[in-house]
């Protein structure tokens, strides 16, 4: 187990023309579960690969447990990694896959067997030890990959979109399993994903990446309720945060913070006179798409389904948002104003 500290790290490709990771600094205390969240092409995988030693940083420092590791080859870093494809060795049985990292450090055979058994039990794959990867289902492969990663107690655990090859149902149970696993082992974990639900559910902290730069690091609560800038505000949440112009500022609010008053807009509320364009009733909730006539801004609101019955397309209604839920962003820089 170890801490990870990254200082002003940059990774460039094509002789510096493409900056995949751009001056990133990040501190992970021992035992943390941190999620790197970003769209595809945001540099999150490159950042992880640089930490693993698969890419060379062009500047900056990577410290694993305080030790400068920039020049270490991957095998010297005592890192475990789970790839999106799981990268199981197709020619080896499950048991041999799991024991491979132990054989690489020349552990005695008896000890290897014991460790493999322990890891297999931890993930419930005892029955599969003699099979080849091609004979396994997606979920089983994933568990083999996890067992292989954890079998030698790494100091750092890297996961590159490990759930994206699973179907929705398996993904749910796998998320719970990751959480349980982290609680059991306490290994410092860096988890890369583009799925914000995964990020919110799993991460103790989330780092949001865009164009190779970290936009914000914070707890899921902070990221969602106090986004550092308009990028984070619009990246998180489904639907994303609404941004409406107001002089030199942008006012931001989440779709579910709006409500429909019976009569006049009460005090302490921001009025939203809106022309309704479309209503999507999704079962428990309804999404209301509309335009604010004053600024011609499109907004999306979310109401409980039972309140959306009387909303007709084309009608103009005045919704409101509590002032306390409004965020203010600088129109030019996109940064959130500290209240």
């Amino acid at each position: 187990m170890a801490s990870l500290s990254i200082e002003h790290l940059s990774t460039t490709f094509d002789r510096g023309r493409v900056k995949a990771v751009d001056d990133v600094s990040l501190d992970m205390p021992d035992g943390e579960f941190l999620v790197l969240l970003g769209a595809s092409g945001s540099g999150k995988s490159t950042l992880m690969r640089t930490i693993a030693g698969l890419e060379r940083p062009s500047s900056g420092a990577i410290r694993i447990d305080g030790r400068l590791s920039n020049e270490d080859p991957p095998r010297k870093r005592n890192i475990a990694m789970v790839f999106q494809s799981y990268a199981l060795y197709p020619n080896k049985t499950v048991a041999k896959n799991i024991s491979f990292p132990l054989e690489a450090v020349r552990m005695p055979t008896a000890q290897i067997q014991e460790k493999v058994k322990w890891a297999a039990t931890l993930f419930g794959i005892d029955e599969l030890l003699h099979r080849k990867p091609r004979e396994l289902s997606g979920g089983e492969r994933q568990r083999v990959a996890l067992a292989r990663a954890l079998v030698r107690t790494p100091s750092l655990f890297l996961m590159d979109e490990p759930l994206s090859n699973l179907d929705a149902k398996l993904r749910h149970s796998a998320r719970r399993e990751f959480k349980r696993l982290h609680e059991q082992t306490g290994i410092t974990t860096l988890y890369v994903t583009h799925d914000q639900v995964e990020a919110m559910g799993l991460g103790q902290r989330i780092a949001i990446l865009n164009k190779g730069q970290i936009q914000q690091i914070g707890t899921p609560h902070e990221i969602y309720h106090e986004p550092a800038n308009t990028f984070v505000a619009q990246f998180m949440g489904s639907p994303p945060m609404n941004l409406i112009p107001d002089g030199d500022w942008l006012l931001g609010f989440h779709a579910e913070d709006a409500w429909l008053p019976e009569g006049e807009t009460p005090a302490g509320q921001h009025a939203l006179p809106m022309e309704i364009q479309q209503v999507e009733r999704l079962g428990s909730d309804a999404l209301i798409y509309g335009v604010l006539p004053a600024s011609q801004t499109e907004v999306i609101l979310k109401l409980p389904d039972r309140l959306a019955g009387g909303l007709a397309i084309g009608a103009s209604r005045t919704f409101c948002v509590p002032d306390s839920q409004l965020q203010r962003f600088d129109l030019r820089t996109g940064l959130r104003a500290r209240n």
Binding site: G53, P101, A104
Partner: peptide, 17 residues
């Protein structure tokens, strides 16, 4: 696949292994 080679590298295997 490159993944598999990189995985082996991370798993601690040297060139000949």
């Amino acid at each position: 696949p490159r993944d598999i080679l990189e995985q082996a590298e991370i798993d601690g295997a040297g060139y000949f292994r």
